[in-house]
Design a protein around this nucleic acid. Sequence first.
DNA 1: GTCTATAGCCAGATAGAC
DNA 2: GTCTATCTGGCTATAGAC
Lengths: 203, 203
Amino acid sequence: MARLSFREQVLRVREDAIVQSVNRLLAEKGFDAMTVDEVAADVGIAKASLYKHFASKEALAAAAMVRVLERALQVIEAQAARPSASAFDCLREVTRWTLQTQLAGEMPSLPSQNSSLRGTLIEDKAYVNLVMEVSERLGQWIVQAQQDGSLTSQLPPEVILYTLYARACDPVVGFLKAGGQHSDEQIVDWVLTTCLDGLAART
Amino acid sequence: MARLSFREQVLRVREDAIVQSVNRLLAEKGFDAMTVDEVAADVGIAKASLYKHFASKEALAAAAMVRVLERALQVIEAQAARPSASAFDCLREVTRWTLQTQLAGEMPSLPSQNSSLRGTLIEDKAYVNLVMEVSERLGQWIVQAQQDGSLTSQLPPEVILYTLYARACDPVVGFLKAGGQHSDEQIVDWVLTTCLDGLAART
DNA sequence: GTCTATAGCCAGATAGAC
DNA sequence: GTCTATCTGGCTATAGAC
């Protein structure tokens, strides 16, 4: 990769700061409640300057999603590098990271109904490629874990994949945290248990 | 209860129509995307007339929540009237109703972050009483099912209660329906399985 | 590229006649 | 209570100077 000029490095650092703010605000308030004014204030620049970097509010959200998907892929690759870990172990640890990220207030959440937002996302090649890459990697682990008998074969891989994705916006995490009675680690363990072991007693 | 005058009956029918529209629109688009203009158009009256019946958009949402909680309580009571049903059976069937209602596009969904909405809800005695009543009834079944060994005792009743409530906004239902490949009944069964049996294989 | 100032729009809520 | 017409505020996005 070519070396970046000083100007380009400054640009990149600034955009990183913007996306980081967007990420936090999306996690905290959601897409609709987040305003571009807030983002600008949080970054410490004028709103008009934001629009020099990103074309729209939707583009800001897309950048935040790309960021979190890149992190997810890093976590996936870190798990894949553990020789002693089974496919089931890898899925559990990636899901644990998802819950921890949500609990830390760093998991952006977007409304799935918003059509202009959907449009921006599917036009974003980086976003689409990352979703496909992450789904592909998780899908391979799912099939493998079903074959070795650690994941149930009663559900299609698709259902299992969606169920794991859904942990990124599981409201149970927020309810338990709002109660203030339990440690983050305890909350993550409980939600992981409901997800993997279910609510019915295991004999 | 005193007989209602004709005028009062007309009023009640109209308000029922309003709340029904709100319920459907909340299920379809969510609170933020739903506009009061849409509600008025859907009911077939002027927006100003809506505000004679309900003080604010938040009050409309609260009325829809009261309506769905009343229905939930009816379902709970229908289950409680089945002498042969175990506590676990009752919980499963109430959860099934929740998923079916969501799948039918009749489960209103509210953003849990919105503070003015939260304020309106907790000021609404009917809403608060219904939430408490539903939680109480489900809580009793949960404790009973844990005692008879059909529900896991590894999780606090609170965690199980929240996990069941969360089925009302489980995004997996919408993902699977959007795929268009599966019947509603199949989707409900799969999500019930993930919830009660978990993703890990049962030996 | 950064800023201040503002355009343009939309949605919640209300005024006032009937 | 219902309507039409309007107010009001907040938000996205942009113009234009520096």
